[in-house]
Simulated assay, not measured.
Amino acid sequence: MCEAKLCHNIDVQTVATTLALAEQHHCEQLKDACLGFIVSPGVLPAVMKTDGYKHLVPSCQLVLQEILDKIAAVA
């Protein structure tokens, strides 16, 4: 129930932190929602400016690869 609620409250400022936590706690639905939000047109540059993203880079390398894979699939 919490995972579903969090999926509806994703925004630029919280998505990277939420994605890291979703990965850490194996919340696939939430992880997919975060990845989908991040790859939406024009969103990634804003996300990359957040502190959450700065934490995501060194701590979740595999998630960064998933972001790139999703962007490549959309393009």
Rank of each mutant, 00 (worst) to 15 (best):
D69A: 12
K49M: 04
I10Y: 11
H26A: 14
C7Q: 13
P45R: 02
S40M: 14
A33D: 08
G52M: 10
D11G: 07
V43S: 00
P45K: 02
Y53M: 01
A33I: 01
Q24L: 13
T17C: 05
Y53Q: 02
S40Y: 09
D32E: 15
D32F: 04
F37G: 11
I38S: 03
E66I: 03
A22F: 08
P45W: 00
K31T: 00
C60E: 07
K54F: 08
A16M: 08
L19R: 09
L19V: 07
H55A: 11
Q13N: 14
A73G: 00
L64N: 05
A16E: 06
C60T: 01
L6W: 13
D32I: 01
V47I: 05
A20H: 07
A75N: 13
Q29S: 11
A75L: 15
V74F: 05
H26F: 13
T14S: 15
P58W: 05
K5L: 12
K5H: 10
H26P: 01
D51L: 04
A33K: 00
L44P: 01
L62V: 01
L64P: 12
K70G: 01
H25A: 02
D11W: 10
A72P: 03
L30H: 12
I71L: 04
A16D: 08
I67C: 09
D69F: 11
D51N: 06
H25P: 05
M1W: 11
G36Q: 02
A46N: 06
P58M: 03
G42L: 03
L35A: 01
L21W: 11
V63Y: 03
A22I: 06
E66C: 10
I67D: 05
G52D: 07
V43K: 09
F37D: 07
V12G: 06
K70A: 03
Y53K: 01
G52C: 06
L19H: 10
D51Q: 08
L19T: 03
Q24P: 02
C60D: 11
H8Q: 14
A16F: 08
N9G: 00
Q61T: 09
D32G: 00
E66R: 13
I10A: 11
V43D: 09
E3P: 10
I67H: 06
H25Y: 15
S59G: 00
C27A: 15
I67L: 11
E23V: 05
A73F: 06
D11N: 15
T14V: 06
I38R: 10
Q29G: 13
Q24T: 07
P41W: 02
H25D: 12
F37N: 07
F37C: 02
D11L: 11
V39P: 00
L62Q: 08
A22H: 01
H55N: 08
T18L: 15
A73R: 15
A46E: 13
H55R: 10
V63L: 15
H55V: 10
Q24N: 05
L44T: 03
Y53R: 01
A4I: 09
V74N: 09
V15C: 14
A16S: 12
V63T: 12
V43I: 15
H25E: 09
E3S: 13
A4D: 11
M48G: 12
T14P: 08
V74I: 05
M1L: 07
L6K: 07
L64Y: 10
V43M: 03
C2Y: 13
